[in-house]
Structures are given as structure tokens and as C-alpha cells.
Simulated scan of single mutants.
Amino acid sequence: MKLTVLGASGGTGREVVRQALAAGHEVTAVVRSGARSAADGGRGRLAVTTVEDVTDPAALGPVVRGRDALLFCPGLESPRSPGRLGAVAHALVRAARAAGVRRLLVVSSAPVGPLPPDEGVLGRAVSPVLRAVFKDVYAEAAAMEAELAHSGLDWTVLRPGKLTNRRGKGRYRRRVGGNVPGTGTLARADLARAVLDLLDDPAVRGRTVGLGSARG
């Protein structure tokens, strides 16, 4: 597939690019000015570029046209400015519509969604604290999700727990339409695998998918 990865200079985006190339996809990696994607090689299947203003649909046009899917992997730890993620998502949706690209996957965060009904005692105790401390971060992610929900595109929102740089397990837990109980942490390598696994899965189109580390 021909993929565009926005946020390719971040920890998750870099891993998505690496695994996509290893799987034989053709990748356009959109990075911050002065940054580079960590993925090398790809035998001509990797193009690294910057976009001057990612909140401008016209500026996104060249990296969107002719692609089979768009993957947005923003860093959610500390949004740089209010409304940023919602504005980027709005521009990405408009650019995708103009280019006739329908498939769009976005990485969000588990606390944006409600606790699952089978969440444990610890999760129920910790969740309100996290939501209070990082309320601005989750508000940004919620605005981004809202843009997708009203886009009319074949979108999927992935909601992992706290991301780590640990070695991936090569597997993960998932729940379509809700968070997994005891979400905990998830290696970026496993998140990237989930992103690519779900590209062609019709069951997750127009749905949120909760992700957690595999147990055992």
C-alpha cells in the first residue's frame, strides 16, 4: 500500500514507518522541519518530507494525493498550542476528501474514552487522577477524534495506554468500541503493529479501538 505517516519524527511515527517499510509498503514520512525519520533503507520506497503548515489543507495536498491510507501519529504528551490537534485533524480530513483518500487511522489515548465496565479497582482509582492532571492533553485528543467522527471517511481511532520504548511483545490486546480493562502501558512497537494490522480490517472502520499490552 501507499501510506503517508504524519508525525513520523516522533517515537510512534518512527516505529510505524520502520514496520511499514519492513512489510513492503511505500511510505511518505512527514517530519518536523530539521528532523529525520528513523527509518533508513526501504529500497526507494521511503520519501521523507516536511509540510510548512499542517493545519492548511492545501499544504497537505502533495503528501495526501495518490495514497491508499493516511496514518496520523501525534505526540500527545504535551500539545504545543491550544486547538492544535483538532486543527490538524480538520485540515487532514479536508485534504483527504479533496484527494479522494478515504482510509485514515489516528493514534489517540485511552483516557479520552470512558472506562470499560469490567475495569478493575486500581484502574478506577487511578483514572480520575490522570484525567485531571492531563485534562488539556485529552481535550486536544478529543477534539481530534471529533473531527474524524464527522468526516464521512473510513476512519479508525486507536486508544492505547501509556506508551513506552520497551521491546514489543509482538502481540497486544484490543477491544473494538471501547477501552480494554487494565490498559496499562503499551510498547510503541506493538502500537505500530496494531496500526498496520488494522489498515485492512473492515470491522474497525468508523470505530475506536482500545489497545493494551498482551498479558503473559
Rank of each mutant, 00 (worst) to 15 (best):
G75V: 07
V121A: 13
A146T: 13
G182N: 15
P116N: 06
G123E: 15
R175T: 12
A142Q: 14
V126D: 05
T164W: 10
R32W: 09
V107D: 02
L60N: 00
D154R: 13
R175C: 12
E15A: 13
G152W: 09
V93H: 04
R43N: 14
N179G: 09
P181F: 12
H90R: 14
T208M: 03
T49Q: 10
V121S: 13
A69T: 02
H25K: 02
G100E: 10
R32G: 11
E77L: 05
A98Q: 12
A8Q: 02
V88N: 00
A139K: 08
V88C: 00
R65Y: 00
N179M: 07
A203K: 12
H150A: 15
W155Q: 09
E52P: 05
R171L: 12
D197R: 11
V204L: 03
R18G: 07
S78Y: 03
P82N: 10
A132M: 13
L211N: 06
G75N: 14
G120Y: 02
L196E: 04
V157W: 04
L199E: 06
G42K: 01
L104Y: 03
L198W: 05
R205K: 11
K2S: 09
A214D: 12
V176T: 10
S33T: 05
V195W: 03
G7M: 02
G41N: 11
L153H: 02
T156C: 14
K2R: 15
S9A: 06
L186Y: 08
H150I: 04
G152C: 06
L148P: 05
T164Q: 11
G44Q: 06
V31F: 08
R36P: 09
K2H: 13
T12F: 09
D201R: 09
D190E: 12
A47G: 12
V17S: 01
R102W: 01
T185G: 02
T12A: 11
R65V: 08
A141K: 07
A141P: 08
P128Y: 08
R124T: 11
T50F: 02
T183L: 04
A187G: 06
N165K: 10
G42C: 00
R131W: 11
V16W: 08
G42N: 00
A91L: 03
A96S: 14
P128A: 11
T28A: 08
H150Q: 14
R171G: 13
A39Y: 04
V133F: 14
S151G: 06
V112F: 03
S78L: 06
P114D: 15
N179W: 06
P202G: 07
F134C: 09
T55S: 06
L46I: 11
